[in-house]
């Protein structure tokens, strides 16, 4: 649910990074935070446990520039990936405009990916959304590790509709901005359709 403010000439959109525990959602946001000009970003808020696992969400506001005289602001959120934080994950999807699914490419994490992907669909449905109708991008993260599954195989499981997906190494930033750009583009085109 984007927020269009004609008075301050701003568009606010909410993008949620979803995925299993330790897949690199927070790392994506941290990289974006490091690589954005100070005037384009707000504070990166992390509600995390003492061991730096996301407890509720991370939040990064970005104001990348103007479109047609409107300041475009993206609010990036991550969900807590660990299975037992299901209730919190649901809350963060409220009002979402676009979703990035961050998949962990390691072979032993395929089951966790699938479980999280199903969880995403169920939670979206509870809010009245359908994943197929939402701006959505998949990121295959951790491509630098030795034991990764082939992208084709991952797409076959997580991406049956063949939407655009990105290979990434969020630690070094590879694929991070490409992913963000892809989902942001879809979100803005959605606005175009509706307004």
């Amino acid at each position: 649910m984007s927020f269009i403010n004609y008075s301050s000439r701003e568009i606010n959109c909410k993008i949620v990074y979803y995925g299993p525990g330790l897949c690199g959602k927070t790392t994506n946001l941290q990289y974006i935070y490091r690589r954005t000009n100070p005037e384009q970003k707000g504070k990166l808020i992390s509600l995390a446990t003492e061991t730096e696992r996301t407890l509720f969400f991370d939040f990064l506001p970005l104001a990348l520039g103007d479109i047609k005289g409107f300041r475009v602001r993206f609010h990036l959120y991550t969900v807590p990936g660990q299975v037992f934080y299901a209730a919190s994950r649901k809350l963060i999807l409220k009002g979402v405009d676009g979703v990035v699914f961050v998949a962990d490419s390691q072979i032993e994490r395929m089951e966790a990916n699938m479980e999280s992907f199903e969880d995403l669909k169920i939670n979206l449905a509870e809010q009245g959304y359908e994943l197929e109708k939402l701006p959505f991008t998949i990121q295959h993260n951790k491509r630098d590790l030795p034991n990764v599954a082939p992208v084709e195989q991952m797409n076959a499981i997580l991406n049956p509709n063949g939407i655009q997906s990105f290979e990434a190494v969020a630690m070094t930033g590879q694929g991070v901005f490409e992913t963000l750009k892809s989902v942001a583009k879809q979100v803005l085109f959605e606005l175009k359709k509706h307004y």
Binding site: L64, G65, F70, A184, L188
Partner: peptide, 20 residues
Amino acid sequence: GRLDESPFAEISDEDIDNLF
């Protein structure tokens, strides 16, 4: 139906590329 004076009707690929 959609607004007449919608500022978003003409968002182009280029506009979005410029943001990044």
